[in-house]
Design a protein around this nucleic acid. Structure first.
Length: 474
RNA sequence: GGCGACAUAGCCAAGUGGUAAGGCAGAGGCCUGCAAAGCCUUUAUACCUCAGUUCGAAUCUGAGUGUCGCCUCCA
């Protein structure tokens, strides 16, 4: 078994060979903090987080870096609209970002560099590019000269002379070639600025990722990730700067996730057809959102809809049910028998080889359902379950749990672990007892009042032959 | 105009040469005061079309149709 990654640069699946044995250095393009991020933006955050978990599981030490873009035109615009400083906008939405990704079950990156903290380094990089004649100054602005860059377009497959310049954006007269992109931007009145040899201004967008990724990960580093829309111009321009300045290869593997669509169209802020992750989190648990994204391959476009979210939710419930039916608890002890090890390795192998094939999470999740089905089957076929059978089922649940954990599922322990809060359970038990009495008296109205009332609180009562059980809704 | 992606059951979705994983929905059954939930069983005979390569193709090649994306900021 070996890990294969689809590399945008070569447009093929390649065997993954790390630069340093046992280590993966990974950079994921993060948010521009001018607004709440939308549910489509959540896709890379979630999938690449899951991939990181997986890489760690198969034994890599992963250094994971995600930038926070806190210098940018849209932040300035947003600040003007809300009539506060750009720093306040950035700080507000950075906090919101961290809050939201936590709810999505995303583990913190090792580093979250902010663009504003690296302006000095960016200026140094721009100086080098000017010295080497890759960049030029024009009235306080600095531009990267695309024609000077060998192989410009190698990532996106675009040829300079075939691009439709000016088709959708006005040409800038200060540029020598209309495709040249800005490295340093002179500040207009009332815009925030930094001192530089060229003007009071701010760095262009692409430069920060070049500087910050290399700062933490070195040159070259292993994996650079982001949404497919970043291929051009963002990542193309990163390569141009980084490789021109250093003379070395910038990144070995480029990974890009496809879009989240809505009604067949790309979800985007400019089209206005988006939901913020925040809104969606009000309706669905972060883990449901994770399930939704991981149920598909990251390089396929997905359509977002209420129906599909509900499907993801039901599927996840299904898995949790199996854990609950098996009386699984992550804390209880069990014996790792030979039989367990054998069964574990059978499913684990299947799961891992799915993930190793360019992170095929959809196929991996199918393995989880396979185990889930096996658990339920065993429990139902045997009306009277022996102690041994019960143990076997428990071991299957352990396997299910461990594999799910690899991609960041099963963090809602209250879903299968019932003794979280003694007090809570006692009170609930009392209510159930009262309802039982009411049912015996056939006072259905009052009995239903309890059931419906609890449902509103997120607790579902399940009446069975030998008593009433309960369950917490996601 | 240039470049690229995708097209598998009602819906979602794996599967890159040997006769179709999985989920949701549906149907039948069990359970049940009702309901909800749960469980069991079941659900693709041409994988967009046509042509080709092959003993054999959803899987490779060519042509076509359709959908979407990039070439502006965008995950």
């Amino acid at each position: 078994m070996a890990l294969k990654i689809y590399n945008t640069l070569t447009r093929t699946k390649e065997l993954f060979v790390p630069i340093e044995e046992g280590k993966v250095k990974m950079y994921v393009c993060g948010p521009t903090v001018y607004n709440f991020f939308h549910i489509g933006n959540a896709r890379p955050f979630i999938v690449f987080d899951a991939f990181r978990h997986f890489l760690q599981y198969i034994g890599y030490q992963v250094i994971y870096v995600q930038n926070i873009t806190d210098i940018e035109d849209k932040i300035i615009k947003s600040a003007n609209e809300e009539n506060v400083s750009t720093a306040e906008i950035a700080s507000k939405y950075t906090k919101a970002f961290f809050k939201d990704i936590e709810k999505l079950g995303i583990k913190k990156a090792d580093y979250y560099p902010k663009a504003s903290a690296f302006v000095k380094e960016m200026i140094e990089l721009i100086k080098v590019l000017i010295e080497k004649d890759y960049a030029y100054e024009s009235d306080g602005d600095v531009f990267m000269s695309v024609e000077k860059v060998a192989n410009y377009g190698k990532l996106s497959g675009k040829l300079i002379d075939k691009l439709q310049v000016g088709a959708r954006v006005e040409e800038n007269q200060a540029k020598r070639n209309p495709l040249d992109f800005v490295l340093w931007k002179k500040a207009k009145p009332n815009e925030p600025f930094w001192e530089s040899p060229w003007s009071k201004g701010r760095p262009g967008w692409h430069t920060e990722c070049v500087v910050m990724s290399q700062h933490y990960l070195g040159t070259p580093f292993d994996i650079h990730c982001g949404g497919i829309d970043l291929i051009f111009p963002h990542h193309e321009n990163e390569i141009a700067q980084a490789e021109s300045a250093s003379g070395k290869k910038f990144v070995n593997y480029w990974m890009h996730n496809e879009y989240l669509n809505i009604k067949g169209e790309k979800m985007s802020k400019s089209l206005g057809n988006f939901f913020t992750t925040r809104e969606i989190l009000k309706k669905y648990d972060g883990e449901v959102i994770r399930m939704f994204f991981l149920s598909k391959h990251y390089r396929s476009p997905i359509d977002f809809s209420e129906q599909l979210m509900i499907e993801a939710q039901k599927g996840l419930e299904n898995l949790y049910n199996s854990l609950r039916l098996a009386d699984f608890s992550p804390k209880s002890e069990f014996n790792e028998t030979e039989q367990f090890k054998e069964a574990f390795s059978k499913y684990e192998q299947k799961f891992i080889s799915a993930l190793e094939d360019d992170f095929n999470t959809a196929s991996g999740i199918a393995v989880l359902f396979e185990i889930s089905r096996e658990i339920k089957k065993r429990l139902s076929k045997n009306k009277k379950i022996t102690k041994q059978e019960k143990q076997d089922v428990y071991l299957l649940a352990v396997i299910l749990y461990r594999l799910g954990k690899i991609i960041g599922l099963f963090n809602k322990e209250e879903k299968f672990q019932k003794n979280i809060d003694r007090n809570f359970e006692d009170i609930l038990g009392l209510l159930i007892k009262i309802r039982e009495e009411l049912r015996q008296r056939q006072d259905w109205e009052l009995a239903d009042k309890i059931r419906i009332g609890l449902k509103k609180l997120g607790i579902i009562l399940i009446d069975k032959k030998d008593g009433t059980e309960w369950e917490v809704v996601l």
